[in-house]
């Protein structure tokens, strides 16, 4: 029996008493999934033996986890509000806009959307999915719809709202619904359309849809040197190239 207890002890020890990690833990918004996956690999290639870890979820869930003591070096939020809230609470420092993303209308391949159709035709589609008001993509969408109502009319807005069948809790859930063809159209980021090649993207007028700003912060509880290392890499030539490949814009 003794060997069994030794094995249990070894397993527990491996889980708990690990030496300080040789790489940063990065909390990243769901819309950063693909780009940060590649950035993680690129960072590790430049730091042999080191291991960077990604925690991907909605910005609000990540902010909550950081508040509750999840130890990490960097938090990359899809909006300024969640990152600034952590700074205001004294849990994070040095907020910085590191990328932008455009809100677009994604159309499912099966949807009845002839070439040349434009935003005015949106209420003709049967099922539209948006982000919930609590998540960044939902807030950008709500702001866009309000601004667009002034141009296309209150009837247009009512028509769009009547066809909203779901308000999802993160942008990947929104994109998945339209990529699976269960929804006809959805408001997502340009980068989400890049991740699902079957989707068609209808750009939104720039004056109605301001770009989403991605803000990262260093978490006070984490290792400062590792945080700086990751954040410097993020805006290096290599980091910028990877972000651009995935559809992100450069900071203003």
């Amino acid at each position: 029996m003794r060997w069994a207890w030794l094995a249990v002890g070894a397993a527990l020890g491996a889980g708990c008493g690990r030496a300080a990690p040789a790489g940063p833990t990065v909390l990243a918004a769901a819309s950063l999934t693909d780009a940060f996956g590649e950035l993680e690999a690129a960072w590790e290639a430049e730091h042999p033996g080191a291991d960077a870890r990604l925690v991907l979820a909605g910005s609000q869930a990540l902010a909550l986890q950081a508040r509750q003591g999840l130890r990490a070096e960097v938090f990359a939020s899809a909006d300024e509000a969640h990152a600034r809230a952590l700074v205001d609470e004294g849990l994070a420092r040095d907020p910085r806009v590191f990328a932008t993303n455009a809100l677009v209308l994604a159309i499912s391949p099966e949807a009845d959307w002839p070439d040349g159709a434009d935003l005015r035709d949106l209420p003709r589609l049967e099922r539209i999915v948006v982000g919930d008001d609590g998540v960044p993509v939902g807030r950008y969408t709500a702001a866009f719809l309000d601004a667009a109502a002034a141009r296309y009319g209150a009837n247009w807005l009512a028509g769009v709202r009547a066809h909203v069948v779901s308000r999802e809790s993160n942008v990947r859930l929104v994109a998945a619904k339209v990529a699976m063809g269960e929804a006809d159209a959805a408001f997502v980021y340009a980068t989400d359309v890049a991740a699902f090649p079957a989707l068609r993207a209808v750009p939104l007028p720039a004056d109605l849809a301001p770009a989403a700003r991605y803000v990262d912060v260093s978490l006070v509880a984490g290792d400062a040197a590792l945080a700086d290392d990751w954040r410097t890499f993020l805006v290096s030539e290599r980091g910028r190239a990877i972000l651009a490949e995935h559809g992100f814009g450069a900071p203003p």
Partner: peptide
């Protein structure tokens, strides 16, 4: 529910 029924206040939330 989240995946199959969606998340619409008053209807599927």
């Amino acid at each position: 529910t989240l995946l199959f029924a969606g998340n619409l206040p008053g209807r599927t939330r």
